[in-house]
Write a protein that binds this DNA or RNA. Structure first.
Lengths: 164, 164
DNA sequence: CTTGGAATGTCAACAAGGCTGACGTAACTT
DNA sequence: AAGTTACGTCAGCCTTGTTGACATTCCAAG
């Protein structure tokens, strides 16, 4: 992963004070990160949970409910409440699996895709601005640290999907 | 959207696909980031909201309730619910302000400091491991991108406090 | 074929922790 | 004396997480 390996070189970036600042940076940045979509959702009858569902269905059309459960890390009951409202409002469609008819494969409708787009446009805009301001080297570092911060199982999942 | 036209220098790190991966990385990393303290809190009668309060009172002993409201960005009713339970359990003390006796200055008790320490130890351990694995250059980039992602007011606050 | 177990999805009820609105009290400021 | 500020509290609502119980579907073993 890295160029370190310790030795004598400066490990000053590992001081408790530095780590504390990193922790707070995560907290404040995550708040900014979610704020734009949250603002859009507010007023519609949806919340952040709906956003997450739309995002991952968009990313992996035809994914099953069980799949989504693994990715989102919530209980099926919790996810179901969200999905039901998305069905009812015609944002998401479920098709019974052909091979295994217990499974429901999820797809965005036109309407669902439109909402997903507006949410993700807002979030991407902030991300793009941050990336552009920071530059490619910083962005690479950003990704490296985030990956190292995930649970190992999560990281495995994250890295295998659509490799570079 | 396309692969960007614009200048000659590689702006490939700004593709929509790349941004999407960054967005997901934030999501998964934040989950890892909070999971260790959450596990500790679970079983005690506290949650993430209590953790946040303890963290910022620890960081700025003697801070006022109003201050904390600004930092945490929640309503006083919401914060009050949390603070009350921390008072009741003897983790936090409030002292009436000397200059302005309307203000309550907040401090951790020994017991509160102990819990804060155990939570922050867990969180710092993960952070340290991630930092160490990624190396100092990546960490610098990480911080740069996070700062660029905050709301501007938030960033101002964040950067002024205890400068490098 | 049938029956039992494993996946998968649904319904009901509850808890944490956000929110708004209204009101009260003490203390500072003008 | 009047208005503003800092804080606390009551009441009630919403989102989104949780468990527990139950229904459906598929598959494999008898």
């Amino acid at each position: 992963m890295a160029e370190n390996s310790s030795g004598g070189e400066s490990l000053l970036f590992l001081t408790d004070e530095n780590l504390r600042k990193g922790i707070e940076a995560m907290f404040f940045a995550y708040r900014g990160f979610t704020s734009d979509p949250d603002r859009i959702l507010d007023g519609l009858d949806y919340g952040r949970a709906h956003h997450r569902a739309l995002h991952f269905i968009h990313r992996s059309p035809g994914t099953t409910v069980g799949n989504l459960l693994d990715i989102l890390g919530v209980t099926k009951q919790s996810l179901n409440r969200v999905l039901r409202s998305l069905f009812d409002d015609g944002l998401v469609e479920a098709k019974v699996g052909k091979k295994d008819r217990r499974e429901r494969h999820l797809y965005l409708t036109e309407k669902g895709a439109a909402l997903e787009r507006s949410l993700s446009d807002a979030q991407r805009a902030r991300m793009r601005a941050a990336y552009r301001a920071a530059g490619p080297v910083a962005v690479a570092g950003f990704r490296t640290v985030l990956e190292a911060m995930m649970d190992s199982e999560q990281r495995r999942q994250f890295l295998k999907e659509t490799s570079p």
